[in-house]
Structures are given as structure tokens and as C-alpha cells.
Design a protein around this nucleic acid. Structure first.
Lengths: 144, 144
DNA sequence: CCTTTATTAAGAATAAATTCTCATTAGTCA
DNA sequence: TGACTAATGAGAATTTATTCTTAATAAAGG
């Protein structure tokens, strides 16, 4: 490709960034989320990732989260009264358990069957969310 | 009671406020919540109450909410990703529906039966919350 | 290796919800 | 009615989560 052509294409692309770069920080953040296998808060991610990347900043965590959501690698998990957590995308339909002792969120499989019948007449039901509360195994004193 | 005795008791009470006063504003706020019969946000309450009390301030709404929660008249309703709503206390166990069009929250009666079985082994289940999402009757174009 | 420029770290800045401050108003009780 | 002081209104201040700014760093391609 000639320089002329390349410059023309760049002009047409409206200054779109050339390409996403695979950075050390982003790889570490992605690994943290994969290995946790449960929803993590930005602060959780920062803590865990700093074990491998000591100087990591919180802004980078937020940027990575946004990028990964855009790329379809991550989804937000909203829990009542809490800031959002994030978990890897692509899991099948499931719900969550929050430990009242450590506040951590865990995935639970299964879904209450008769949930369709709960919507009163006149309400169009499109989705639902179940959150269980209690104490997780580590916090009950059980071994992991 | 003599002045001496009264003063002694007051001193012993550690400057505890003498008594709650029944104010116009607080009565109006209470009535708004009773008549809504569904969870309202502080801003919702302000809007509705200002119809009767034009100069009402948001700080007063927050103060009234705290007072009423302390008195056991109100409970907080937490919805994922949303600021808390408040509804009158004393209702029996129930869950909530959020309209994706107007964002309003509605009470729904009933509770999925098999919810106990969802907690995996090792997790101590103490409570749960179900939120349904969809479109409420007014927003589907149905008459109230 | 060198250039280009996306990405980062750090801290400042924002946004939204809630709380505080203080002068003024208004319940309550004698 | 009058005194006492809790409650209010208005705006400033705070809090917490998130986003922006900027100089410095480090991927990626040649």
C-alpha cells in the first residue's frame, strides 16, 4: 500500500484508534477474573491484580472493565445496595449468593421454577433476578 | 413534680431530646407513603409531598425517613443498581417488580417455593430477594 | 532498534445521593 | 399566651464510586 492510500484510509477512519494493545495489566486483570470464577468489584480486582502488578492503578482497572464489557468478555452483576461486581461473560443463566459476613458474591446454579407465575395480571414479565443471603462456607468456619 | 426533681431527671437523661413533635411535613410524608402503597424514592416522596407542602425540602424528607425507620414505620427496599426506595413497614413477606420503562417499583405477592434448594451445600441460607423486571400496566398502555 | 501512539499511574475532578449547618419557624406544655 | 427547643428550608459540605487529565511508559510494526 502506498503512503497516499494509507493516509486516505486513515482520514476516512475518523481518527479511530489503530488497534487495541495486549498489555501486561489487562492480561493480569483478565486472569484474575477468570480464576476467581465469581463476581468481583473493581476494588477486589485491584487487590488481587496488585499481587502480580504492584503499581497497578484503579483507573486502569475501570478502563479494562469497560474494554472487556465492550468486547463481550465481561458482564456486570448488580446486587441490591451494592456497587456493581463483574464476572466473565458466557455463563448460562444463574443467580447469586451474598455472604453477610464477608460480603462476597458467589454464583449459584438453578432457578426457581414457578417464577413466571409471580407477575400479577397486567404486568409483562421480561426478566428476573434472585439473590440469596446467608453465610458462605469459609465464613461458617468450614474449610474451603 | 417539683422543679428540682424535673431538673434532676433531665440531667440524668443526658440531653436526650424532650419529645418528637408531630409536624405538618412529617404527617404529609407519612400519608404519601401510605397512599402510594409501593416503594418510593426520597425524590418521589418529595415530589408527591410538595403537592400539599410546596416549600418542602429534600433534607426534611431524608430526616423523616430516618425517623420513621427508627420508629418502625418504614423499611428500605433495595433494588439492584438503584438508590433505595422506602415503603411502609409491616407488610408480609413479598418481593418486587421493576418497570423497565418508568423505573417504578411495585409489590408482588407470593414467593417461589423451591428457593431453599438453591443454596449449594456448605452455604447457610438466611434470606432471599426476588426482583422481577418487565413493563407495568400503565406503561403497556393499559388503563390503570 | 526505532518510531508511533495506545496505555498507564497518580492524582484531580465529577456525579449523585445523602448529610450537615444554621438561622428561622412552629409544635408543645405550663 | 409565652417560653422552650425540636424541626424546617436552603444551601454548603460530605461520601463513595467512577471518570478525566497529563506526563511518562511500553506495545506493535517496520
Amino acid at each position: 500500500m502506498t503512503d497516499e492510500k494509507r493516509h486516505a484510509e486513515e482520514a476516512a477512519s475518523q481518527h479511530r484508534p489503530r488497534a487495541k494493545r495486549r498489555t501486561r495489566q489487562r492480561s493480569i486483570i483478565q486472569r484474575v477474573l477468570l480464576e476467581a470464577n465469581r463476581p468481583l468489584s473493581p476494588h477486589d480486582i485491584l487487590q488481587a491484580a496488585q499481587a502480580t502488578a504492584p503499581g497497578l492503578g484503579i483507573a486502569t482497572v475501570y478502563r479494562a472493565i469497560h474494554t472487556m464489557i465492550t468486547e463481550g468478555l465481561l458482564v456486570a452483576v448488580e446486587i441490591p445496595g451494592e456497587a456493581p461486581r463483574y464476572e466473565t461473560a458466557g455463563k448460562e443463566h444463574h443467580h447469586h449468593f451474598q455472604c453477610r459476613t464477608c460480603d462476597d458474591i458467589f454464583d449459584i446454579q438453578g432457578c426457581p421454577p414457578a417464577i413466571q407465575q409471580l407477575a400479577p395480571k397486567g404486568f409483562r414479565l421480561e426478566g428476573h433476578q434472585v439473590v440469596l443471603y446467608g453465610v458462605c462456607p469459609p465464613c461458617t468456619g468450614m474449610p474451603a
